[in-house]
Nucleic acid binder design. Structure first.
Lengths: 350, 350
DNA sequence: CTGAAAGCGCTTACAG
DNA sequence: CTGAAAGCGCTTACAG
């Protein structure tokens, strides 16, 4: 399909007057080469605009030099910073990034040992059996926000969900005297949600507030689902003076439901989220939430995977700290509007 | 590195009692195979859990079956839907997606003929010379939101920026009687921004409003940059009754700057954005903007690239329609019952 | 420090 | 409908 035949290692070798083995050595810095030879080869490469064929290298070396990323789907403000972290870290290490969503493929064909050296697997994107099979084959795997089955030692990267949630609820109780606090659960099997709920429960307990199941509903980490859930609770007359929406997306739906029902936020009902995604600060009132270091999760995942790829031991669990972000929706005052919004870090140019 | 040797096509052939050529044929559906033979091969594949090595296929067939995506960086709410569209369309067509950001690599090494069949190139991510070189080699390329140099026939996918902007400004002028409308430009070389500015100018002209360069500033399609730009205009005493922020990110910064300066939005100053990214509806007041079909842009780009890959002619230009999204920041009433009611207001005098 | 040669696991004419 | 064989473009012991 290409107009001209791209140069191969043989073309370079001929032009430089050496063997292809020597060219390969300078390409891979795999052995010292005489200075003049080196210079000739470098020149030949430059003149021909030679780029090694990935496929040939992979076939011969049995390493793909690419990391696979498996996701359930591409959505939510959560995903962007994570991808940024993964891509940056992979690129820095000289690895390519192959992305695939599990959308409708029941089995994991498009990503595997045949086109990646290792895999990053996000919550809910791969069947546990397939995971076990891959792992037993010795294929390097790192999990994101989802624990492996007990018997498998697969590294996992996740965040301090419980501690974050506890800080948040403690704040509502201690600073704003809320005691009738609802919790909106995420998707059923979602570990983040379960840990957040534990933090919520612990905070209640620590303050002697009885747990009331009527104040638990399914928000699904989803704006519309949360909207419906809150409407339902309100209609049922569940007594509330605060809602922990589970995550920021759900918090947006919660705010909408409350506004529509004429409840004042935060005066009547305080609202808090989790994650601190980009739009959290733009909500009205500005959302009090917990900052999840999402980009770092991505970086850490690649980091651990690289260790595995290099035959080094990896951390079984990487638990990244979360941080309370106080804005207005909890009942606190607005901070100075002088402060510009915070932005994710942009790597410096070299 | 793997515990067991993964099965190869030879293992399958032996088990099925056929040659590797025949196995290859059923793998690729490249010739009809006798039913019993087919069955035996299928069985062998299943029993062995055989998956063809991508590298070997690529090397032998000279097709990578993957699409490369080159971006300047991973950021902004704009990027997510575009990626979703690209990934979905590629997956559907059986292509892998290899992502790379141009961050610090001055030249395009990590993505090219050696590991992709074709490339999707987003604005600002590749030097024009490299682009020309790739194209002249006959490498399939599709551009996103950025025109090729005149002499190169590279398909481009973009949106109706000018028409969208014109609708927006027409609305401000005709419905809300605004005449002192500022425009915040995007990054210098950004085509989207230039076309939006043309739409802005045409709308002014059509209503006999003189163009005033004092009302043009650099918002950079960036929240903080827009914030600073608006503050500056306000300090300089530039007369304004509306601001077209260039895009939604900049609109967020604009709202912040106006709020901080105590200007009422939309009463004193109307604000409109462009793109309709996810947070636009969450801003206060809810943002009137133009919906850019971003996910579709991604899909269309893959679609055109696939045509190229299949040797079919591709559309030189795909121009996707935009659509006005009226919310509240222009001065209109809230449309949906979801939002709180507002009293009608009488526009300020000019 | 360098080369000859085997081999990585497929696809694809070419025969039959 | 099927097989034998060449070839894709590299890497990597093995010699020297």
């Amino acid at each position: 399909m290409l107009n001209h035949q791209a140069p191969t290692i043989l073309d370079v070798a001929r032009r430089a007057g050496v063997s292809i083995a020597t060219v390969s050595r300078v390409l891979n810095r795999t052995a010292t080469v005489a200075p003049q030879t080196l210079a000739k080869i470098r020149a030949a490469i430059a003149e021909l605009g030679y780029v090694p064929r990935t496929a040939a290298r992979v076939l011969a070396s049995r390493k793909t030099n690419t990391i696979g990323l498996l996701l359930p789907e591409i959505s939510g403000s959560f995903f962007l910073p994570m991808l940024r972290g993964i891509e940056a870290e992979a690129r820095q290490a000289g690895y390519g990034l192959l992305i695939h969503t599990a959308q409708d493929s029941p089995s994991l064909q498009p990503l595997g040992e045949h086109n990646a050296d290792g895999l990053l697997i996000f919550t809910d994107s791969l069947d546990k059996n397939e995971l076990a099979t891959l792992h037993r084959r010795g294929f390097p795997l790192v999990l994101l926000h989802d624990s492996p089955p007990d018997d498998l030692l697969i590294p996992i990267i996740t965040i301090e969900n419980k501690a974050g949630a506890k800080m948040l609820i403690d704040h509502l109780i201690e600073v704003h005297q809320r005691r009738r606090i609802a919790y909106l659960q995420g998707p059923p099997a979602h570990e983040d949600s379960r840990w957040r709920q534990r933090g919520y429960c612990e905070a209640l307990k620590a303050h002697g507030i009885p747990f009331d199941p009527a104040r638990i509903a399914r928000g699904g980490f989803d704006e519309d689902e949360a909207y419906m859930a809150v409407r339902r609770m309100l209609q049922q007359g569940v007594g509330l003076d605060a809602i922990f929406a589970g995550d920021d997306e759900a918090a947006a739906g919660t705010l909408r439901a409350l506004k529509q029902s004429g409840r004042g936020v935060p005066d009547e009902v305080a609202v808090v989220g989790f994650d601190d995604v980009s739009f959290a600060q733009h909500l009205t009132p500005a959302l009090t939430t917990v900052r999840a270091p999402i980009e770092q999760v991505g970086r850490a995942a690649v980091h651990q995977l690289l260790r595995l790829l290099h035959g080094q031991p990896a951390e079984r669990l990487t638990l990244l700290p979360t941080e309370l972000v106080i804005r207005e929706s909890c009942g606190c005052h607005a901070q100075s509007p002088m402060a510009p919004a915070r932005h994710p870090h942009i790597p410096e140019e070299v």
